[in-house]
Structures are given as C-alpha cells and as structure tokens.
Design a protein around this nucleic acid. Sequence first.
DNA 1: TTTCTATTTGGTAATTTTGCCAAATAGAAA
DNA 2: TTTCTATTTGGCAAAATTACCAAATAGAAA
Lengths: 99, 99
Amino acid sequence: MNKKIEEEYLEMSEIFKALSHPTRLFIVNAIKDKRMSVKDLTKLVGVDISTISKHLTILKNSKIIKGEKEKNYIYYTLAIPCVLDFMSCAVNIINKNNK
Amino acid sequence: MNKKIEEEYLEMSEIFKALSHPTRLFIVNAIKDKRMSVKDLTKLVGVDISTISKHLTILKNSKIIKGEKEKNYIYYTLAIPCVLDFMSCAVNIINKNNK
DNA sequence: TTTCTATTTGGTAATTTTGCCAAATAGAAA
DNA sequence: TTTCTATTTGGCAAAATTACCAAATAGAAA
C-alpha cells in the first residue's frame, strides 16, 4: 500500500471512526429530523455536558454535522444525509447476524 | 438513553468500529471483486502477516467478510455488499470537505 | 455593569487499539 | 513419517479513546 493510497484510506477511516461510538450514532439519529442544542442532547443521552460537547466536536470535524448559533445555544443538524444509509446498512448486518 | 437503546447503538457502533482503520478499509476494497488469501493481502498491504490476520478477524467477527478454506489457504470475500455504499458515501464527504 | 446560562477546554486516569515478534496450530506436500 | 507453508495466538509496549471534573469563555439577561 503506497503513501498516496494509504493517505486516502486513512482519510476515509476517519469518517468511520467518527461514527464508531454509540453516543455519536445516537446523536446523529436524534438530530436527523429536528435540530438540537448541546443541552438538549445532554438531557437525552444522560452523560456530562462536556462529554457531549466533545462528541459533537468529533462529528463536526468530520463534517457529518453542522451547528448554527442562536442566542446562547448552538443547534446541530445533519450535514451529510447519506450517513443515515450507513446506519440502515449497519442495522441490516446486525439483523443478519442475530437471525 | 435507556439500556435497550444503548445496547442497540453499541451494536451498531461495532460495525463502524470494524471499518474505522485504513488497512481494514483497504482489505474490504481489495476483496470486493476477487477473493484473497491472508498471504495475498499481506503482500498487498505490506505489514506483518499476524497484523493482517488480526484485522481479518475483526472484519470476520462483524460478519462483514467471510473466509473459505481451500488447501492451505483461507480466501476472504465480502459478505455484506452494502459496505461498499458506506465507502462511496465516505468518499463524497471527503470530496465535499476538500473542495 | 453584574449575574446567569450554554458551551468549550484542559487535565487525568482507565480502557482500548495497534503492530510487531515469537511461538503454536493446522494441514498439505514430500 | 517428517518437512513445509499458511494462518492464528499470546504477549507486550506505544498510542489513541473515553468520561468525568473543574475551570475558562462567550454572550444573553437583568
């Protein structure tokens, strides 16, 4: 695997890595229909707000989600809809595995 | 996030985690058209054969790939074609990020 | 201005992941 | 049988990930 190819797959793996945590997948699903603030998500998930903030930073850095500021809040929405297809494919795999 | 939901997203995240390494993505792409042995992949990737073997175990445990034994070799193929759609969506994200 | 409120950042300890080496296995070939 | 060859496993050290707490920011509200 040469340097250029290696770099390509590394970049691709970052996307998958951003999605490889249950809380981050939950967040992606939670904001798919309606935007949510850090605080909203914190309440929904039930962990420390700093933890949620860091998860959001990871998703934002991969450009999977984006945030818009409004008053004191930052509201997050999905930036890349095809991520949802990722997830339904993953569900298919799981169903296949468990049957 | 209650216990049952948490469990669901955890399971889903395992799939993404299995794909969140450049070598493993390279492997998935390499075997998409023709089956390859551990040795073939080792040559192609250029790391220790034990490292490849462990990557293959991770992919196999998530049922993303499957192996068929033949003589001394184990030939691996894709078990879940929709994984390729994952990857092209990831490429889209990357292209969007870099433009 | 001062006081809240939402969010981010830094630090830290616990856990997980990774890649190599060496050794073990499994089974084909001789 | 013994000798190869392909693959897996165990161990270990380095690196990365994670969650919490405490403190810092940013900016709205009073």
